[in-house]
Design a protein around this nucleic acid. Structure first.
Lengths: 208, 208
DNA sequence: GTCTATATAAGGATAGAC
DNA sequence: GTCTATCCTTATATAGAC
């Protein structure tokens, strides 16, 4: 039991260090925008050493994304697990997702890279391995919220309302009506939940 | 008047042909994923010829995006211009945006590339030149729809509800509850408008 | 496990002929 | 306006020493 050789621990350590240090690079510049040299320099190794740990660049990228998603997806699923009313759980999830997207820019950007990826193998691998579980949970919540609405569309809308806001973060700077507090995830979460609960235009005279 | 030399017409033609043929390449693979050689091959020129028309790759990309956005943004602004009630104009815009995103994948993807771009010069240029006008129009509509809601957030939400749906198009294939008709822009537009008008969960017993 | 060295291809960009 | 030819840099990946 204590015989576990140190070598293996070391190996794991280097491997994970590579994954962690390549995350911000891939998040910022995408697959084509990052070279093995860039990663080697960030880790403090030579390029050749990377090939000891990963078969090729594609595998390194795939493992980086999966590694980065694993714990975050688990955290998001936890937020959905509670046993309050569906609306309470929705509020909890929306707030959590907003907090995560606000604080973890790398994760947000990796999500976007995955959505844009045209490499079918990479995309289907990541979609099934990383998005599916989370989507299922929100999908189920959506059908609890309103059994008469298309749960698939509603789940997508919930993600879209939160994620797109942060996706557009950099360009929002140039748009009118921008106020600093809109970057506060609590403010966005309240806006999204109000919108989903139909509080929009409730003071409005139009036929609804 | 007839003296306009043919040479100039030709020049414009080639230039625009380059822009049009590089659009699907940049849309699919992004700035770093496309080489000048790729573009030259698509147009049927040699690489060197491209440098007669554009100073460098960056300029070619910038011009491609601007060219591609110009007419589409104009079309979207037209959709907002009518003089019906705010809700009617919203419906018209949402349907139009959904149709455009469904039919013009290149445009959809270029939007995503611009949002992801970390080159500040490129991003601020495109944000101001291309997104701002359109956002202003939706922002104004949003404050008409509900003067009590943060119009900036609401405008962003309207874009997010439509755009994110199509952004996630490729990964949605692997998600539960997926039905072909969800790809129909009319179906999505109705879903989004219903959601914005607060028809969600109207049959629900929860406190609202 | 990591290094040096290198093979081999692909990238952006320019010079000068036509 | 477009070509050929070429320069120089950067890229992925491997071989073999340590």
């Amino acid at each position: 039991m204590i015989r576990q050789p140190i070598r293996i621990i070391r190996k794991r350590k280097t491997r994970e260090e590579i994954l962690e240090l390549s995350t911000p690079l891939f998040a910022r510049h995408g697959y084509d925008g990052v070279s093995m040299r860039d990663i080697a320099a960030a880790v403090g190794l030579t390029q050749a050493a990377l090939y000891y740990h990963f078969a090729d660049k594609n595998q390194l990228y795939l493992d980086t994304v999966a590694y980065e998603f694993r714990e975050r997806v688990a955290a998001l699923k936890d937020m959905l697990a509670g046993n309050g009313t569906p609306w309470k759980r929705l509020e909890c999830f929306v707030a959590g997702l907003a907090r995560m997207m606000a604080s973890d820019k790398d994760f947000l950007r990796l999500v976007q890279w995955v959505l844009l990826d045209t490499n079918e193998a990479r995309q289907s691998t990541l979609a099934k391995q990383v998005f599916r579980d989370m989507f299922v949970a929100v999908h189920d919540l959506a059908s609890e919220l309103d059994p008469h609405v298309d749960a698939h569309l509603l789940a997508m809308s919930i993600f879209g309302l939160v994620i797109f806001h942060f996706q557009a973060g950099a360009t929002r700077k140039f748009m009118p009506g921008r106020r600093p507090q809109q970057d506060n995830p609590e403010v966005l979460a309240r806006h999204v939940c109000d919108l989903l609960r139909g509080r929009l235009a409730s003071a409005d005279g139009e036929a609804r």
